[in-house]
Amino acid sequence: MKVVWRDREMEEKGTLRVKTGLAEMLKGGVIMDVTTPEQAMIAEEAGAVAVMALERVPADIRAAGGVARMADPGVIEAIMQAVTIPVMAKARIGHFVEAQILEALGVDYIDESEVLTPADERNHIDKWRFTVPFVCGAINLGEALRRIGEGAAMIRTKGEAGTGNVVEAVRHMRTINAEIARLTVTPKDELMTVAKEMGAPYDLVCWVAENGRLPVVNFSAGGIATPADAALMMQLGADGVFVGSGIFKSEDPASRARAIVRAVAHYDDPKLLAEVSRGIGKAMAGLEISEIGPENLIQFRGW
């Protein structure tokens, strides 16, 4: 946390409330992966609440192989200059220097992301040390609470990035919801053992048991390719969605982006969903999870 003065009046920056607050403002919105200023402007025009600045979308990272790193600062800066909405960028898991660089660039949120090649196979970034807020991926409640314990101000379920296949996103959202529901009916004297088994901080386990939700906003990510996919994740309880390859790997990105924004706003209105799903071109081709091979699944990166 940083204290500064504006005309003799004290301002506290980087507080938890300021970090989680931006995520609260993004609720009900779509965050889109973009690789160029032109794509960022298409996303903003379509009604994205934020963009994720990347060098390659996950589908291309998956296809290219090799080590995936933080994007070139020049690419990120060009995207920041092109739009007025928040700009997020990804750092490798545990790569706190990439995070320091992203903070120095002035990005609005850092995604400590399994989509990039991990830099540390034991530890994640100590996110409390930063003024900029972090979002992290999770496939279950224990992982979500470990990330929050490290200072993450927003969670996204991981899904399986770059596949255009929503099945893993559904699995992770349902898993976390079921684990939260179970906690709310677990007797207080069993919570320490639950915390031990889950590998999660005890105080956060108690908070979830009492409040019946995560203490931060939870978006859905990894495999959303259609307005119906986005609405499905919203009906399953997501606070909003990340769409990675699903937009700019499709036939008509601008129309699809607009349609997904409307689908997230009115996720429980099937008539409107039918209307916006019409005439938006072909979706990205997509991958069947069993054909990827377990060693190539991105979702198991993170500890």
Binding site: M10, P86, Y109, P133
Partner: peptide, 26 residues
């Protein structure tokens, strides 16, 4: 500015109840 410039501060507001008590603004 950008998110790193987002902040909390105490404000004195007119019209609200107990106006002498600062309002924590995010």
């Amino acid at each position: 500015g950008r998110q790193v410039d987002s902040f909390e501060a105490d404000l004195v507001l007119k019209g609200i109840e107990d106006p002498g008590r600062p309002f924590r603004a995010v």
